[in-house]
């Protein structure tokens, strides 16, 4: 889409220099990948998550900061799901034919999305941040975003939410309680920050997903859609 608009000449201005053209391209990319809508969605998720966390902590018989566990999983998962449509363009194959540094754009795109989302969600858990608070929210944001971008490479952006969604549901239902640190390698989204292996697992998932996406981009389906 971005490339089509540029090629059509509708956005070309003869006076624009290389820097201006790059800015225009970035602005187009941001719009074409639905970033404003994503920002709005992340804001809604953060506000809802903050209200839910506050309610969970302050309701009668609450166990304290531990009670925020569902928020620590669901809010980053929701944000990662909302980011998934922007991992590919409307006509991805056509876009890639444009001589642009796509790997760099993909890297910046995912890193900016993860940072903005992580920063917004971090505000939910500033009280007792190491007990299902800010630390776990940021860890899960990066881990689950990595899972979604990795899935976009394998099955395309359209269904990139599916593995993360299924994994989140599985982990929430199947992790034995009380939680053991032995399960950190597969149940990392539910572990407290004190379990270092969970952060390592999230970092590994995030790094692998990001590397795959930067190198290969989202899978283009046979019908050309994503």
């Amino acid at each position: 889409m971005t490339m089509m608009m540029l090629r059509s000449g509708a956005l070309r201005r003869p006076q624009l220099g290389p820097g201006d053209r790059a800015s225009a391209f970035v602005a187009l990319h941001v719009r074409a990948r639905g970033m404003p809508l994503l920002l709005l969605g992340v804001a809604v998720v953060a506000l809802t998550g903050w209200a839910a966390a506050d309610w969970l902590v302050h309701r009668p018989w609450s166990s304290g900061p531990d009670a925020r566990l569902p928020v620590v999983l669901v809010a980053p998962l929701m944000a990662a799901v909302l980011a998934s449509p922007g991992l590919a363009g409307a006509a991805e194959e056509l876009e890639r034919s444009m001589p642009a540094r796509w790997r760099r754009y993909r890297l910046v795109h995912v890193v900016v999305v993860a940072l903005v989302t992580g920063a917004a969600l971090a505000l939910i858990g500033t009280w007792e941040p190491r007990t299902y608070g800010t630390f776990e929210l940021v860890r899960n944001t990066f881990g689950l975003t990595g899972l979604v971008v990795g899935a976009a490479v394998v099955i395309g952006a359209r269904l990139a939410w599916l593995p993360a969604f299924g994994y989140g549901a599985f982990v929430y239902g199947a992790t034995p309680r009380p939680m053991s640190a032995d399960t950190a390698w597969w149940a990392w989204p539910l572990q407290p920050w004190s379990v270092g292996a969970a952060s390592l697992a999230a970092a590994a998932v995030s790094a692998v997903g990001l590397a795959m996406y930067v190198l290969l981009g989202a899978r283009v389906s046979r019908d050309g859609e994503n």
Partner: peptide, 14 residues
């Protein structure tokens, strides 16, 4: 929307 399905699932869960 492409993400209406997971969004609805998570909203129902919450």
């Amino acid at each position: 929307s492409r993400v209406v399905a997971p969004t609805v699932g998570l909203v129902v869960f919450a």
